[in-house]
Each structure stands twice: as structure tokens, then as C-alpha cells.
Write a protein that binds this DNA or RNA. Structure first.
Length: 427
DNA sequence: ACGTAAGAGTGTATCCAACG
DNA sequence: CGTTGGATACACTCTTACGT
């Protein structure tokens, strides 16, 4: 602190500056302009009702969509037609296989910012759930900060009826924020440790390879074929819209946030349906690109669902596919078959891959060499495959990969030459 | 019976995207 | 701003099967 000046002088200086800015009037000058508040209250712009409970009041908006409602290509009933082990594979959480779709909470919140942690408040919570052959969406909205306890109280009551969650990036965003809001309001958090199907991660695995972006808005268009109307707002505008609404009381833009949040929930259900259908019954989904089938197969394979993975690989191979993608599908199918001990079927695929004109499939040649060496003890044939592979790798562009592959193949060739000479010779 | 090596499966570190 | 987990690359361990 400056010499010769008391702390109080310092404070008084600052107060004087603030007074000159009009801050001494408290927040009065920030109060909503009365005319706007009268003309555009949220209650007049978004059909809903004020709900009162022991913690106060908040605004609740409800909407219902029948199961046959089409959201782009999928309908909202698609998900219910899949057995629950499919979302369990998607989420890599076996617990979901025992869950009930009627007790799944589709969750999406709107907040005052992106910074996670304690400072971020969810001013709107969208919650979807299946009920009576419909998808019901409830939107919990606080018209001002003091309404948060009432909003969370009602929300908690509803969440207590739910067993598991479906979200888009909710694991890293929506759920932690909601959990801290409950804690800040001295309420027990809900569903914090519940099984959670976060669609972002399986979506990346399915579409990262062919889509620029895997944001929900991008998937809506590219995968679901759903296009939002003019009422929608981009997510990055949401915090500013809420602050402006708090300041002016003008809820016209808030109406668009309701629309945005509502269709985020509907997209969540539709996307979950599409993804599960893609894994469970790819034949029934319309116009699924071969590449999606290939990625679905790979996902199923990693999830340990060999039967569905095989079906998906075969379906991918039967669809229009780039030569590279077809090669990948065939190779993975062969590995899958080999792992199941179906070596004859696997060998046929590797032969086809090795002979394909476009094929530079070194992996297939290596597999054939392994098969000859270990299964059939035909060292000469194994050596021949290895040398073919060597020739193909020679044509690769220089680099660490090439060096490594060459080294490995040469080791293999050396070993095989030894074995062949040692008398285990070729037929 | 033993040592060796291939193959399969795991673990670690790093990078990146998506959420309003 | 923070949190999450998938992808990637790489090293490592464990199992298996073979040759001696």
C-alpha cells in the first residue's frame, strides 16, 4: 500500500470513482426496463406454467412427442425397439443392459457459460423421458437466480424416478455442473454415479472418420437429416441471451433458447435410437453408408459382441465401399474369425485380400505366413508369403513405419529360411 | 524339462474435441 | 476456463507352443 496513505483513503478513492459511475445506486440502474418487462415476459412467450413448491417458484415448460414422431430420418420409437444390451455396448457399461428405457433421463442443460467448475449455473434444465408411448420433455427454467432452489427441488423429485442418463457430452459438462448446483444448494446430488450413456464418445468412434465435426448440431444434419428452423440459436449465444434477459426482462430471445434446448433433447433420443439401431439391426436403417457399417462393426468388435460385429462387417462388405474401407472390413472380419478358431474361413479372406489387384495388404500376407508356419508347417510357403510382403513394403514411402515393417519381415524371413533348411521343408 | 520367441493382451503418456 | 475419454504410439507382461 502506498506510503502516507491509509487503507481507508484508498477505499474512499475507489468508492468515489464508483460513485461517479453511478454504482452507488446499487443495482438499481441494472433493473430491467419496466416497459420491456411488461411487454415480453417469458410467461407470455413460451407456453408453460409457474410451479410453486416449498423452495419457491420457477417456470416449467412441458412438451410431448409421440413415438412415431419423425426427427429427420429416425423416429422417436427407434430406441425402444432395441434390446438394452445395445446401449450398454455403446456406453461400454454392462450395467445399462439391466436398465429400463422408461427410467432413462435424457438430459441437456443451458448455462451461463462454458467454464466448468463451481462458477457455472444452469439456468435451464431440459429433461426427456419415455412415458405412455411418447417422449415427454420437461424444461425447468429459473426466471432469476433466486428461483434456483425451487427449480432444483422439482428437478430432483423427477430425477428420483430415474435410474440412468442419456446425454451428449454430459459426462464432462452437464452432469458435473448439475452436481455442483445441487451441492451448492445443500441438496444431495442426483444420478451422479448412475449409469450414463454419453453419446459423444460412441458418435466420435462412428463418424469421426468421415465428418468434419461430431458436435450434436453437425450430427443432426449429417446423420439424422434434421434441420432446425430460424427460431434456433447457436449455443455460444446462450449465456449472453440469459444475461440480457435478466437485465431487461425481455424474454423474446429466451424463447429461442427453449426451442434450442427442446430440440437438443429430441435429437438426443433420435440419435440414441439411430445409433442403437445401427448396431442392432443395420438392415432396417435406411440408407446407411457402408463406412458407418464398418465403424459400427469395429465398435461392436471392441465391445466384445462378436456376433453383431460379424454381421455388421459382412453387411459393410456387401455395401458400396471404397477399396481401402473394403480391405479394412475384410481384414477385421478375418481377424474376428481367426480369434473364434474359424481359421479356414479367415484364410480364405486373407487369400482374397492378398490377391486383390488394388491390395497392398501386407497384413494379409503376414497372416498367411503365420498360418503356413504355425498351422500347416509349410515353411517354404510361409517364406514365399513373407517375401511377397517384403516386396510390397519396399514400395512404401520411406519412414519409420517402413523401417520397422522391413525389420520385422526380415526377421520372419530369416527364421523361416532356417526352419525350411532344417528339414521341415516344403511340400 | 527347459529356454526361447511370437502373439495377444495391458498399461502409460500425450493429444484432442465437445459442452454454453 | 475444466472435465472427460477416445485415439495413437509405444513398452511391457503373460501365455502358449515349439525346438532342443
Amino acid at each position: 500500500m502506498a506510503k502516507g496513505r491509509s487503507p481507508m483513503t484508498d477505499v474512499e478513492d475507489r468508492l468515489r470513482k464508483l460513485r461517479s459511475l453511478g454504482v452507488h445506486k446499487g443495482t438499481a440502474h441494472l433493473k430491467p426496463a419496466p416497459p420491456a418487462r411488461r411487454r415480453y415476459p417469458v410467461e407470455d412467450l413460451v407456453a408453460g406454467r409457474v410451479v410453486e413448491n416449498e423452495a419457491g417458484a420457477f417456470y416449467l415448460v412441458e412438451e410431448t412427442f409421440p413415438l412415431h414422431h419423425a426427427h429427420g430420418a429416425p423416429t422417436l420409437g427407434d430406441l425402444l425397439a432395441c434390446p438394452c444390451d445395445v446401449p450398454a455396448r455403446l456406453a461400454r457399461d454392462p450395467a445399462i443392459a439391466d436398465m429400463d428405457y422408461r427410467r432413462a433421463a435424457f438430459l441437456d442443460i443451458e448455462t451461463i457459460g462454458l467454464a466448468g467448475g463451481t462458477g457455472t449455473v444452469a439456468f435451464m434444465v431440459g429433461l426427456g423421458f419415455y412415458e405412455d408411448d411418447a417422449l415427454r420433455v420437461e424444461q425447468y427454467f429459473m426466471r432469476d437466480f433466486p428461483e434456483e432452489p425451487a427449480m432444483l427441488t422439482a428437478l430432483a423429485r423427477r430425477l428420483d424416478e430415474m435410474d440412468w442418463l442419456v446425454s451428449f457430452n454430459g459426462r464432462g459438462f452437464d452432469l458435473p455442473i448439475l452436481t455442483t448446483r445441487f451441492i451448492m444448494n445443500r441438496m444431495p446430488p442426483r444420478l451422479a454415479d448412475a449409469p450414463h450413456l454419453d453419446l459423444l464418445f460412441p458418435a466420435r468412434r462412428l463418424w469421426k472418420s468421415r465428418l468434419e465435426s461430431c458436435r450434436l448440431s453437425a450430427l443432426e444434419k449429417a446423420i439424422l437429416g434434421f434441420y432446425r428452423d430460424q427460431a434456433d440459436v447457436p449455443g455460444y449465444l446462450v449465456p449472453q441471451i440469459y444475461f440480457d434477459y435478466l437485465r431487461t426482462g425481455d424474454a423474446r430471445e429466451i424463447a429461442r433458447v427453449f426451442y434450442h434446448n427442446l430440440y437438443d433433447i429430441v435429437s438426443l433420443a433420435a440419435l440414441a435410437g439411430h445409433m442403437c439401431r445401427l448396431l442392432h439391426a443395420p438392415d432396417t436403417a435406411t440408407a446407411v453408408p457402408g463406412e458407418d457399417l464398418l465403424r459400427a462393426a469395429a465398435l461392436l468388435e471392441q465391445a466384445g459382441d462378436a456376433a453383431r460385429a460379424e454381421a455388421a462387417y459382412r453387411r459393410a462388405i456387401a455395401s458400396p465401399l471404397s477399396p481401402e474401407a473394403r480391405e479394412e472390413a475384410l481384414h477385421h472380419l478375418a481377424v474376428l474369425l481367426k480369434r473364434q478358431g474359424r481359421r479356414d474361413e479367415a484364410r480364405e479372406i486373407w487369400r482374397a485380400l492378398a490377391e486383390a489387384r488394388y491390395g497392398a495388404d501386407v497384413a494379409a500376407l503376414v497372416e498367411l505366413a503365420k498360418d503356413c508356419e504355425h498351422r500347416q508347417r509349410d515353411y517354404a510357403a510361409a517364406l514365399a508369403y513373407t517375401e511377397q510382403a517384403l516386396a510390397r513394403v519396399q514400395a512404401w514411402p520411406p519412414g519409420a513405419q517402413k523401417t520397422r515393417a522391413l525389420a520385422e519381415l526380415q526377421r520372419r524371413a530369416e527364421r523361416l529360411r532356417g526352419k525350411a533348411l532344417a528339414g521341415g521343408g516344403a511340400a
